[in-house]
Design a protein around this nucleic acid. Structure first.
Lengths: 152, 152
DNA sequence: TGCACGATTAAGAATCATTCTCATTATGGT
DNA sequence: ACCATAATGAGAATGATTCTTAATCGTGCA
């Protein structure tokens, strides 16, 4: 639970400094929460962080998104979710999404599969003359907790 | 533009009839629009359809979704999108998504790639004890129109 | 150290896609 | 035709997110 995020924080601090933005305690807390808990909704972030206002959380997430520090996910739950950007963590990944409770968990796929997919996506995009930048994959199903709840 | 949707309509009519729902003219128009135009936002559907009220469109889409006739997509644009369900069309597909104008276009991938992905997804889900039901893939990039606009 | 300026914060108002309410209208069975 | 049930549409309500604004904080500079 007590991860060393000093490298991460230093990277972000430099990034924000370049455009005259401050890396405040509140922003640090948001990053720590995302770093520890993975993709979070706003209410989850408010619990993790210590007394940050809702409006400040939204504004800071927007700023951090513009800086490429976090990325906003959008699924079917009532709240959006936020995660640290792959650019920052260096880990390309995808998501297990529970269609019962909307929880989101990171997964990585073998690199040879990623290569095959990238090729297939490029080919598929050709027909519509699309330029491909990236891909998002949601593996949708039921998480352990919801499987157990359904059984009981 | 004048596709023959009689088979499709018959299937849906039967499906709705089984649960005492009517397949009205308005609902038929929504299905026709989706069948011709692919994934649509609500404003797009209102244009296609002839004088349907906004609230009725939303309500009908919700009903049709519960019947498994349509599926709701959620991306980053201001509006949600709707498409005919794969169960109904029989065509498993994915989406090209333009991050500039939010347009969504259907694409199909070779079946051998789908098989490889399914295996990889099952394996990836094991670690979190997830039960996999399906997968959604967004190939994100820039559509032709936005490429041209950017150039000009 | 103290000051001044710009950035950040937070409370609450505003926005706006979506959902809900309810009175009216259409439909199908008898 | 009559009735029960379902669908429609206008407008109100909801609620996540964004915006406004006044107060506070941090940093650099004298």
């Amino acid at each position: 639970m007590n991860l060393d995020n000093s490298g991460l924080h230093h990277l972000i601090a430099t990034k924000l400094d370049e455009v005259g933005q401050m890396y405040t305690q509140k922003r640090r807390e948001l990053v720590d929460a995302l770093s520890q808990a993975g993709p979070c909704t706003l209410p989850e972030l408010l619990e993790f962080s210590d007394g940050i206002a809702q409006s400040s959380a939204y504004r800071n997430l927007t700023v951090l998104e513009e800086m490429g520090v976090v990325r906003r996910l959008v699924h079917h739950g009532e709240y959006g979710r936020w995660e640290l950007s792959e650019e920052l963590t260096g880990h390309h990944h995808h998501h297990l999404v529970c269609h019962s409770c909307d929880v989101v968990i990171d997964v990585e796929l073998p690199t040879h599969i990623e290569h095959l997919m990238d090729e297939a996506f490029e080919t598929a995009a050709l027909g519509s003359k699309f330029t491909v930048d990236r891909h998002n994959i949601d593996i949708v199903g039921t998480c352990v907790d919801c499987q157990e709840t359904a059984q009981a």
